[in-house]
Design a protein around this nucleic acid. Structure first.
Lengths: 214, 214
DNA sequence: GGCCGCATCAGCCGATCGGCTGACGGGTCC
DNA sequence: GGACCCGTCAGCCGATCGGCTGATGCGGCC
């Protein structure tokens, strides 16, 4: 009937730590017809392993994976391999920190779970060809990121912030990081500037909100 | 062939703000056979409306719903109606605060998305009969909650905590809530006790962690 | 009526924080 | 070699916080 031969389906590996969500994705993707789910992983480690063994064209990756390595690290390891599959991130959050880290780790696309299912199907095919796919809200943020010089925290500042979020005082932070209290205060001041706050509790709130930690 | 007549399927309404997840659940539940999804909602308001109009036996409800009312409030409104359907909460988090609020709002069951799909099917049927279903981790927490008198914050303390998480100082909090600074400090002291911390940043961290706010 | 939890307030004091100015060494980039 | 960022440190000072003791009023509960 159809003169054009059916294209071979895209070989896909799905990684999500929630079994119900994973099963839902499998059922959903199966209905697409031109997508073949060749494996499923419930952890980052498993995804890295299966990506190497099953050689899928695309890995659909959640960023939040509970225990073990997170989606960013899994993405980094998967894309580091020769002949690596393309990683399409499918997650809930569209925070700057997550997007930046995922792209930095080598993700080909970044899709939100709020997206329409048809977009997901289209994105899988685009990713199979190496084409970048971004959800509109994500694309907006990426553009904004380019325009605004990105008030990003340095590694050291992030460490300080992590200690702060434990409720530690300056003296305790200093001891934990083997630096002087004066240095801690210097860093804190810069952190306040970058986050647009002027108290430690405000900094912790913003950090948790923007998912700058862990 | 089969001597026993096929039981009429459970009428189900699915509520989740993420379109991809919702579509996945639909596809998954459709494969169960004895479950009929009669409607889907992408917001709490829509769920309340559809629950009244479609008269499902069970509502599968996510707690995090983005804008508008949250899953707890939606559950409260749905179960408030006469002849109300049973609400089965299906969510990611198993924090004490979420569980307590959901059950308080009238939820019949509380399932985690990490659960196996078969458990979801079984839970829907149990919920249809009004039987309580709890994921094992949730059940454990409920039991622990019963044993330990639950260090719960009062309404006022929660308000103070919310202000604190904005990074406000004691004077500002006092002004915002129309009370004296001394009172703010008294409340803060009690909050520290209940949360097991001794600094404001620690309190904010715990609050965000245990999802005590919003 | 007494008990108790909750919210409100006062005053005190030592410890801590936040903002400031200034400084030094080690990278990187051009 | 100079500009620049990062991380490190010092000292100062006023503002704020955290812990304490003690007190009042209100509303349930028995």
């Amino acid at each position: 009937m159809n003169p054009t031969p059916a294209p071979s389906p895209v070989r896909l590996l799905v990684c999500d730590d929630h079994a119900v969500v994973r099963a839902g994705l499998l059922a959903l993707l199966a209905s697409a017809g031109d997508i073949e789910v060749v494996g499923e992983a419930s952890s980052g480690e498993e995804a890295v392993d299966l990506a190497a063994r099953l050689a899928p064209q695309v890995v659909l990756m959640d960023l939040q994976l509970g225990d073990g390595i997170d989606g960013v690290e899994a993405t980094r390891r998967i894309t580091a391999a020769p002949e690596a599959p393309h990683v399409l991130v499918l997650t809930t959050y569209d925070t700057d920190a997550d997007i930046t880290r995922a792209i930095g780790a080598g993700a080909t696309g970044y899709l939100l779970k709020a997206e329409r299912p048809e977009e997901l199907f289209a994105a899988v095919h685009s990713a199979a060809q190496g084409r970048t796919v971004l959800s509109p809200p994500v694309a907006s943020r990426v553009m904004a990121q380019m325009r605004a010089p990105a008030p990003q925290l340095t590694e050291r500042e992030t460490e300080i912030l992590a200690q702060l979020a434990q409720g530690l005082g300056n003296r305790e932070i200093a001891r934990a990081l083997f630096i002087s209290e004066a240095t801690v205060k210097t860093h804190l001041g810069r952190i306040y500037d970058k986050l647009g706050v002027d108290t430690r509790s405000g900094a912790v709130a913003v950090a948790k909100e923007r998912r700058l930690l862990r």
